[in-house]
Design a protein around this nucleic acid. Structure first.
Lengths: 211, 211
DNA sequence: TAGATTGTTAATCGATTAACAATC
DNA sequence: TAGATTGTTAATCGATTAACAATC
């Protein structure tokens, strides 16, 4: 177990391991070798062993890995079992879609509240999550221990809201706006994870090529 | 201009160049050097010049790059100016959010139709896009030249629908389900671009670390 | 025991960075 | 012209793959 600096490439593969192991477990598979898992995931056996060895020794010679154990280990590594409080900002179509359908709990997040500016939205409840007035966001953050903010508001408000979140001690921002929160600045410890829809679709556009 | 094999790392940076150049253009900036653009984007000047040289010679010694020209060049590279026909499958909360708010045209996609199974949804129109009966999907694909399918349906239908799409000649799948469309199989030429929300949030969970 | 499969070290491959001649 | 900045070649760095002794 070496705990140096885990490369980004490895980190991004962890949730995939998690998903595939969960599926194996559901199928009742008890053990799996690095090569079998590699076939399933489109990775080499070597890479899997290398990846896992960043975090510990989870396998056994001649046997392979126990699916259930490895699954739990990876959940631990990702801190999925440690519940973190989160808020969602911007209850538009996308925000609402996430509130209704996305299983935040499966990623270790409990949504404590949602925020919006629209009077007809404030005070309502979506899937058990109360929608509060965005004007009270700063105070709310001061009064509660919130780790993660989900940003699903219009791009033009993203920069300003991001700044406010950082000033009031947020630890991570799950960013659905097209804004790039650039290089650290004062609060280099805040993590921003962005899902840029249009970047993704444009990559697809590139990959399907010309006609 | 070398047209070998463009690496994935470079391809994923192209939409970012596109976004940053668009912003510069909006701000009225006419020219920019690789080092200034690098500062803005958090890349080295070297990397930017290396990236762009995969596609051509867009700069000028002692001057830098013309923002407008480079922007258009990158749009060309991504085929954003070539309109492709697309359909969206699964008009739930997320599908509806995309239909209403996402600017498909900005990524070169025209949404020709949407599909769902719910009787109360079929026949309606969302933001000018007609919702058709998913039972007629195969026939529709045979009758129209559709390049891209947006998958926003429940995970349990993803596999089956993906197969159908591939059989009926789709070129790209923009996948919002948690299903991994694995390794090529028969139709290795079909491109699948996935946005795995939960993978993304779990990476964030890892990065913010323990308490 | 013999076969299987690990964790790790070494070799290879690929991507990023640095250096610099060319030239606007 | 002198200064700036490109495109490209070479050097470095990092990630993936291969090999293998250890051992279940």
């Amino acid at each position: 177990m070496k705990r140096d600096k885990i490369s980004n490439a490895v980190i991004r593969r962890l949730p995939r391991y998690c998903r595939h192991l969960a599926a194996l477990r559901r199928e009742g598979v008890e053990r799996i070798s690095s090569s079998a898992l590699g076939d399933k995931m489109g990775l080499t056996a070597s890479q899997i062993r290398q990846d896992l060895s960043c975090f510990g020794e989870f396998g056994q010679q001649g046997y392979g890995y126990n699916v259930g154990t490895l699954y739990q280990e990876i959940r631990e590594i990702l801190h999925l079992n440690q519940q973190k409080e989160g808020i969602l900002i911007g209850v538009g179509n996308l925000g609402r879609a996430l509130l209704r359908n996305f299983r935040f709990a499966d990623s270790g997040i409990h949504l404590a509240a949602a925020f919006d500016v629209a009077p007809e939205c404030i005070g309502t409840e979506v899937n058990g999550v109360e929608v509060l007035d965005a004007a009270g966001l700063a105070n709310y953050l001061d009064d509660h221990d919130i780790s993660v903010a989900v940003l699903t508001l219009p791009a033009r408000f993203a920069e300003e809201t991001g700044r406010l979140l950082i000033e009031h001690g947020i630890r991570g921002i799950w960013n659905f706006t097209s804004v790039d929160f650039e290089a650290g600045e004062d609060h280099a410890d805040v993590v921003v994870e962005s899902l840029h829809f249009s970047d993704s679709l444009r990559v697809l556009s590139y990959l399907i090529g010309a006609f």
